[in-house]
């Protein structure tokens, strides 16, 4: 039994979680790679007997939040004059990527990060509320209210709310 082998076994699910957090597949594999590197480096902090997948989801999610914050800062610092032109998009590449997305991708991307991560863990990864709240480091009540708001928004974006 090795740590690497256990990681390999859950890697497909880690990639899926990364894909549901990020905006495109290239980003998501970068995120996945960063999370694996961080996990391998911090392997001594993982307690055998606890769930490795939850531990890795937490690492990945924290990296993603850091990255999202850094991007926001960079956008504010370096590109204020372009804000009116691109309204939140980084340019042609983003627009093109956006056109290839399915309704589900688009709806997920429109969610605030805190709702998207809750939805991804529970609806896509199949974690229980308790596990998902532990990964995100939030109380159960906070998790359930994010799930309620996030789902309401998804139903609206995806045009099923009629």
């Amino acid at each position: 039994m090795s740590f690497e082998r256990d990681l390999l076994a859950i890697l497909p699910r880690l990639r899926r979680f990364a894909a549901s957090l990020s905006r495109d597949r290239a980003d998501s594999d970068d995120l996945c790679q960063a999370a694996l590197e961080r996990g391998l480096k911090a392997r001594d902090q993982w307690q055998p007997g606890t769930r490795l997948d939850s531990w890795m989801y937490r690492i990945m999610r924290n990296l993603w939040i850091d990255e999202a914050r850094a991007r926001q800062r960079a956008a504010k610092t370096f590109a204020p004059e372009e804000a009116g032109l691109t309204v939140g998009h980084a340019g042609d590449r983003d627009v093109e990527a956006h056109m290839m997305l399915s309704d589900v991708d688009r709806a997920m991307q429109a969610l605030p990060d805190e709702q998207r991560e809750a939805i991804a863990l529970v609806l896509v990864e199949g974690l229980s509320y308790k596990e998902a709240a532990a990964v995100l480091g939030i109380p159960m009540g906070t998790l359930t209210s994010r799930l309620v708001r996030g789902r309401g928004a998804l139903l609206e974006y995806m045009g099923e709310a009629a």
Partner: peptide, 9 residues
């Protein structure tokens, strides 16, 4: 991604 885990396997 796999090669990261292959290093010691």
């Amino acid at each position: 991604l796999r090669s990261l885990l292959d290093a010691s396997e």
